[in-house]
Every structure is written in structure tokens, then in C-alpha cells.
């Protein structure tokens, strides 16, 4: 399998605090991967490590098969939009495109200009005169003008209103359809990414809680309901992620490793959102990766 990003026991410590610890994950090439977790879970740290803005304290990280720190050839192939899309406020859109052309060895000026026109952003407008949604679109367009093999977006839609979010995702999905860019985008809300991602990484308190293809993850997890009972081994269940009881009934969210045929349990499908919430609430940070990367 061709991997766009691969981490082994990756860790980053700021003074005493580990922002990321024992993080092992892979993002297969060609996917749109969602990096989900609450604020402070380590999402930005991971993305900043991937573009060489930070150096790992321990472990290894490979991006497009190479180590990111100080590798200029690699950085030419990676697009990155940092949180809150920082752009020089007194530059015009046209000047940003010119700057991009000077700073990047791979750069598609016509693509940048065409896209700005398509989304209705005047080239002579200064950044400070753009709405939040337009600024996000400009930052995305600049990143796409590099024709990156890997595009990293840190909370790209967090500060946008619903319409701007939609427009942002439309442009992003159109570009994904055009080429074979791998995308890794983060959000503290799964809902923002549910329709666009086909691969999922859940981070919680500096650790990877769940990792895998969305279809595989949804298929291998089930909700079981049945008469109340003490936790018992159920054939086909690999792990119980969440359990709850009323006086009569027991409900389990489980990861399966085979069909569940025990007639005492009624088996329900789960949504991606159920799954992520269950894993975020799952205790014992530091445990091994639970999902199966395929």
C-alpha cells in the first residue's frame, strides 16, 4: 500500500507536556482523511510535524516517503493551510499569487487565477477586505496552486458559517476529483467532515484512539441490545467500546471480529458519529490503536 503519511511511535513534548505521544498511524495515498479530536488532542501538532514546522521529540515520521524537516524538495509537494488561514492582510489577492509563484518551484498561476475568478474573488482586493469565508477560499486556492500530492488543512472550516463551509468543501471535493491529491484535514467536529472523508483518525489526549477506512470501521462496529446481564463473552465480539444498562436492558457498542449469532442480542448498525463519540469517551489513554488500518 502506498502511504502518503506514516508515523511510528511519534511523540512531541513541549517542556513537560506531551502534545503527542506514542502515535503510530498511516494515511494511504489517494484518501481524504479526517483527523478528529477535541481541542488540545494533538491535531495541530501532528500537522505541524508533517510540514517540518516542528521536530519530533521521539519516533519517526515519513511524508510521501521522506522525513519532513528541512527537506525542500518534499515541501514543494505538500500544501498546508494553517489554522485560521494566516495571510498578509495588506496584500492583494493578485500579490499573494505573485508571491506564491516566487516562493514555490511548483506553481500554477493560471490555476490560481482561474479559481479565484470561479469563486468570485476579485484579484485586486486586499486580504483585509475579504470575508472569513473568502479568506479561507484564498488560502485553499493558494495551497492548490502548488498542485500538491498531499494537502494538509488544519481546522479549515472551524471559523466559517454554514454556507461558507459548504462552498469551501465544494471547491475542495472538486479538486480532489480532478487529481490524485491525498488530503488530511482536521476538525474538532466530525459533522464537518463526515461527508467528505473516507479515512478516519481519532486523536484523544495526545494518543490515537481509532484509525481506519470509514466503510471498514462502520462495518466492523455494531450496537447490541439485549436483556440486562453482566458482561459476558459474546462470540464475534472483539472488544466492548461502551456499555450501558437500565434495570432491564443492556446496550453495548462493540468491535466485531465475526458475525454475532447469539439470539439474545439484537444487532444494530452504527453511524460514524456514534462510533467517534464512543471512542472519544473510551477511557485508558495510552492503549494501543484500536481500529484496524486496511
Amino acid at each position: 500500500m502506498n502511504l502518503a503519511l506514516e508515523a511510528h511511535s511519534l511523540g512531541k513534548r513541549y517542556k513537560r507536556n506531551w502534545a503527542l505521544r506514542d502515535c503510530s498511524l498511516q494515511v494511504p495515498a489517494g484518501r481524504v482523511a479526517a483527523l478528529v479530536g477535541p481541542n488540545g488532542a494533538g491535531k495541530s501538532t501532528l500537522l505541524n510535524l508533517a510540514v517540518g514546522l516542528l521536530r519530533p521529540t521521539e519516533g519517526t515520521l515519513h511524508v510521501l516517503g521522506r522525513r519532513p524537516d528541512g527537506d525542500r524538495d518534499l515541501l514543494d509537494r505538500v500544501g498546508f493551510v494553517a489554522q485560521d488561514t494566516p495571510l498578509y492582510p495588506d496584500f492583494t489577492v493578485s500579490e499573494l499569487i505573485t508571491m506564491g509563484a516566487r516562493l514555490n518551484r511548483r506553481w500554477d498561476t493560471p490555476l490560481a487565477r482561474d479559481r479565484m475568478e470561479q469563486i468570485g474573488i476579485p484579484l485586486d482586493r486586499r486580504v483585509e477586505g475579504l470575508s472569513g469565508g473568502q479568506r479561507a477560499q484564498v488560502a485553499l486556492t493558494l495551497a492548490l496552486a502548488k498542485r500538491p500530492e498531499l494537502l494538509l488543512l488544519d481546522e479549515p472550516v472551524a471559523s466559517l458559517d454554514p454556507l461558507a463551509r459548504r462552498e469551501f468543501m465544494q471547491v475542495l471535493m472538486g479538486s480532489v476529483a480532478d487529481g490524485d491529491t491525498t488530503v488530511l484535514l482536521s476538525s474538532h467536529l466530525l459533522g464537518d467532515l463526515e461527508r467528505v472523508c473516507d479515512y478516519l483518525i481519532v486523536l484523544q489526549t495526545a494518543h490515537v484512539q481509532l484509525l481506519g477506512g470509514v466503510d471498514e470501521l462502520v462495518n466492523e462496529h455494531k450496537a447490541l441490545t439485549g436483556p440486562r446481564r453482566q458482561r459476558a463473552d459474546v462470540a464475534g465480539v472483539a472488544a466492548v467500546i461502551r456499555e450501558s444498562h437500565t434495570d432491564k436492558q443492556t446496550t453495548l457498542l462493540v468491535r466485531t471480529n465475526g458475525p454475532i449469532l447469539d439470539p439474545a442480542w439484537t444487532v444494530h448498525d452504527v453511524t460514524l458519529e456514534d462510533l467517534v463519540l464512543a471512542y472519544l469517551a473510551y477511557p485508558a489513554p495510552g492503549r494501543a490503536v484500536l481500529g484496524v488500518a486496511k
Binding site: 471547491v171 471535493m173 476529483a177 461527508r195 467528505v196 472523508c197 473516507d198
Partner: peptide, 15 residues
């Protein structure tokens, strides 16, 4: 076309 569906619905082209 796959691209136009992906764009108009803002969904993953793989879908």
C-alpha cells in the same frame, strides 16, 4: 460526471 456530483454535493468523489 463524478467531479460535478462531488462538487455540487460537497462529498468525496470516491462516494
Amino acid at each position: 460526471k463524478v467531479r460535478s456530483v462531488a462538487e455540487s454535493l460537497a462529498i468525496n468523489p470516491n462516494t
